[in-house]
Design a protein around this nucleic acid. Structure first.
Lengths: 333, 333
DNA sequence: CTGTTAGCGCGTTCAC
DNA sequence: GTGAACGCGCTAACAG
């Protein structure tokens, strides 16, 4: 690969002149500029961002660490993060924490070595994630959805508890009284918050939550399927279910169908995440839509501000999701 | 951020000694090693991969360029690519071509500047993608699913035509005679190949394909919904449909449900891609599963071989997908 | 066993 | 309007 020096020699000018025609950083006679540009094209010269990074101490690269990028919710989030970053001249290094704390630790180390300019952290918040955050002074970080205890970095929250509460209120407003909740593993904050919102709404309405009304499974469609199978087999069958994740709701819908239970006639279902597929389930899923686009945009914006050196105090922004009414909810029979 | 020089000074040794304790690249007395390691920990020194890259002329970074990373199929592919790359010490820069040829061109340029060691290219093959491939000599490239004309790089094919043929044969074997095909835009190779497989199977079986039996829409759930709506309104209603993408099939299932058409009782449906959701549709979708995991693994392996300098002739590997039988297909009524 | 030194490719003073 | 030269942080050859 051609180097600046070679271009300079071939064009009969100095290295610095080449540098200046590339970066438009000082006046160069049209004559020389043309000649240099010609040689650049001819030699297919492409400046080295790594040399530039070494000199400038910035890489224009942002790390994005998520629990699992193949989960549709994260995939959609990543897509917008990538979009926002690209528009502002940054690249994304994609990192999957999936696999536990050690992979995450290894990744964090690698990212620091690569001298990323900033990090967007979507922590799962699982227990094995404690104490692996990089030094506070290392690189700017923006946390999405979840504030790791002890990590002083900007946070963008998605109002998950409020979202869950709104979802449950919707069910209550329809007239449901026996409402169950299906959620992910108990130790995940994402799960805890959503269950929290459910409980709050139930309490506000003076509704009973019996033991067994809240069922925890994996945050997957298979988990949702299992949860529904259990729920449908009980004596006290709910007339509505708040499912803390669309992926789980997919599994739930499937289990209901298999059991001959009609949604929403016999049971109403509300999901959470508004993943692409939830428009096209049978029936289409009523769900809480987190502001993915705004979250991503804001995360990148704030991160870049920090990268530019803003010393503003730590920000803790909470964005609100909204209920998307589709066809999986109805008044009780 | 601490530098090697600072560590050396603080430890009272030379820079090269520090380098050698870090890389285990020559014998260092236990005494000195301990001392240096101590200073490294104390100063929280992290070696700079960018300086190292400048010196070694490799970045341990692989570019991954896909049409749209939020499409579940690509998201799943990316997840395995990331996994395989990480295991071998490489990072992934994620690039979405979505947005057309100019974004793709810009990305390619950026990737070259960043001096990625190799590129995994999942080209959509749309018409505006012509002539934007980097110079043949630039970096090693492995193409997934689609060989760009004129780009001499290793290719890993997924046997899409064969897959589509198998899907259609399955329908035929069940006894269907009037079979329609729903696919993406006509100008996308991905779409053309799958339609090609459908036509071949029909021809082999001596079955008629009437005009209008093949309908093209966007490669999305919305597109699938639209396609099915049209199909169901026709006089000549098919008893089975091969849908060239699970995402589209999701939309199709939804449209069928809305029209009161029961799957598979009235119409059988086969999809393509085996995305996560297709296990949990109602009914669960029979589909062709491309070997995503193997494709990703092989792509990374071959790419790294090339990076290491293998001069083997261009490889053109075809992996086969397989039919996954679920509940959306049945013999005609 | 350890230190000195010359670049890697570029941006940026400083001098002309 | 242009060029020479230093240094970013690191590795590797060469000395000792």
């Amino acid at each position: 690969m051609a180097t600046m020096k070679q271009v300079a020699e071939r064009a009969g000018v100095s290295i610095s002149t080449v540098s200046h025609v590339i970066n438009n950083t000082r006046v160069v006679s049209d004559d020389v500029r043309q000649r240099v540009q010609g040689v650049i094209d001819e030699m297919r010269y492409i400046p080295s961002a790594v040399a530039r990074s070494l000199k400038n101490d910035k890489t224009n690269t942002i790390g994005v660490l998520v629990p699992n990028s193949s989960n549709p919710y994260f995939a959609e989030l990543i897509r917008w993060l990538e979009d926002a970053a690209f528009q502002r001249g940054y690249n994304i290094i994609l990192c999957n924490a999936h696999g536990g704390g050690k992979k995450q630790t290894a990744y964090l180390r690698l990212l620091m070595e690569k001298r990323i300019d900033g990090l967007v952290l979507v922590a799962s918040g699982a227990d094995d994630e404690q104490g692996l955050m990089p030094g506070r002074d290392a690189v700017p970080i923006v946390q999405l959805e979840r504030a790791l205890p002890g990590l002083d970095a900007d946070v963008i929250l998605a109002g998950q508890e409020e979202g869950a509460r709104d979802a449950t209120r919707h069910l209550i407003a329809l007239g449901h009284r026996v409402i169950a909740c299906v959620s992910g593993p108990e130790d995940l904050p994402r799960s805890r918050e959503r269950v929290g919102g459910f409980l709050r709404a139930m309490e506000e309405a003076g509704l009973d939550v019996a033991p067994g009304d809240i069922v925890h499974e994996e945050f997957t469609s298979a988990g949702g399927h299992a949860a529904f199978s259990r729920l449908l087999a009980r004596d006290r069958r709910p007339s509505a279910v708040f499912v803390a994740s669309d992926l789980m709701a997919l599994g739930g819908l499937c289990a209901a169908g298999r059991a001959g239970v009609r949604i929403p006639d016999q049971i109403s279902v509300v999901g959470y995440d508004d993943i692409g597929a939830s428009c096209y389930t049978s029936p289409p899923l009523t769900t809480i839509a987190p502001p993915k686009y705004d979250m991503a945009r804001l995360a990148i914006e704030q991160l870049i501000e920090r990268i530019k050196g803003t010393q503003a105090p730590l920000r803790n922004t909470a964005l609100a999701g909204h209920l998307v009414l589709r066809a999986s909810t109805a008044p009780p029979a």
